[in-house]
């Protein structure tokens, strides 16, 4: 009798815990699905949906320059998913990827011994983890991005921390991203507690809030503005924006981290960006990465 009681109690407790765990990401899931639905509707037929989504574009460009019937996973390559001309240029560059040397340097850094005999391999025994960052550390009650994890490792081993935007940091992350891509990993961000949920919500609010002297939100360019041409470039959609970092940007002429790209966007809005290892930056990364959940990790990649 007692055994039955204990078993039933344990089962109930487990069920309650599971339900709660599912609850924590319920809104995030709703957000993610709504974003996919929006982009699929927007890019089902840009020419036909001109009045609704592309009022300032010409009929000619919508007919000739935009791909149709795009689905969720198509957005992994950002604006190249719908921009025919940009996609052909992207595919030509990919024939000789400019980031290959960065991956090799990253692998060397992975195995290079610290002064104390440890290495980054000590902190990252599994290299196929690009799709799991940022994660919420339930013990420390804080978010951990791949950038902060690398610098935490260096600091803990008495090494000098790296520049968070380029150089060794970007090369090492390119190696991790490449290993994850080759292993067929997917973006898998978890929200498993009330604190993690709050961190996600903070990131979401940051994304949708108008900022800077230009009074722009991230969403104005990458939700409502996704696909819209600004001068000669088309803006990328939120869905799939984190899958391919670090990225080799032609503008940078080198590999750079996701934090570098986001900082650039925020500066363009006319606001001082959060520090790369700050809570605010990690919350924004958490939201962005959750929006790409389920998509294949495909970094490093090349972007204009």
């Amino acid at each position: 009798m007692l055994s039955k009681f204990v078993k039933s109690t344990a089962l109930i407790a487990l069920t309650v815990c599971s339900l709660h765990a599912a609850d924590f990401n319920a809104q995030a899931e709703k957000d993610r699905v709504a974003a996919i639905k929006y982009f699929e509707a927007k890019f089902a037929d840009p020419e036909k949906n001109k009045d609704k989504f592309f009022p300032y574009s010409t009929n000619d460009e919508l007919k000739n320059d935009y791909a149709k019937n795009l689905k969720h996973n198509d957005f992994a390559i950002g604006a190249y998913s719908f921009s025919k001309d940009a996609k052909s240029q992207y595919e030509a560059i990919k024939e000789m990827p400019p980031y290959d040397a960065g991956i090799e340097k990253g692998e060397e850094l992975y195995n290079k011994k610290f002064a104390n005999g440890n290495s980054l391999a000590t902190c990252f025994p599994d290299t196929k983890v690009a799709g799991n960052y940022p994660y919420f550390d339930e013990k420390k009650k804080e978010l951990v991005s791949i950038t902060s994890a690398v610098n935490d490792c260096l600091r803990a081993n008495g090494e000098k921390e790296w520049n968070t935007q380029k150089g060794d940091m970007a090369n090492f992350q390119a190696f991790i991203a490449s290993s994850s891509t080759e292993a067929g990993k997917k973006v898998d961000i978890k929200i498993a507690s009330a604190e993690a949920k709050k961190a996600y919500e903070n990131g979401k609010e940051y994304y949708y809030s108008q900022k800077g002297y230009l009074k722009l939100s991230c969403a104005e360019c990458h939700i409502q503005g996704a696909g819209v041409r600004v001068r000669n470039e088309k803006l990328s959609p939120l869905t799939g924006q984190t899958t391919h970092f670090p990225a080799y940007r032609l503008k940078w002429d080198e590999l750079g981290t996701l934090e570098r790209r986001i900082s650039g966007c925020i500066v363009d809005q006319g606001q001082v960006p959060p520090k790369d290892e700050s809570t605010q930056m990690k919350e924004l990364l958490y939201f962005l990465s959750y929006m790409s959940n389920g998509m294949a990790v495909d970094g490093p990649d090349v972007r204009k």
Binding site: K30, Y38, K211
Partner: peptide
Amino acid sequence: QEEESKKTWKLASPS
């Protein structure tokens, strides 16, 4: 702007 965006940011979210 910060005060205003506290009331308006959800208007831009598809969900």
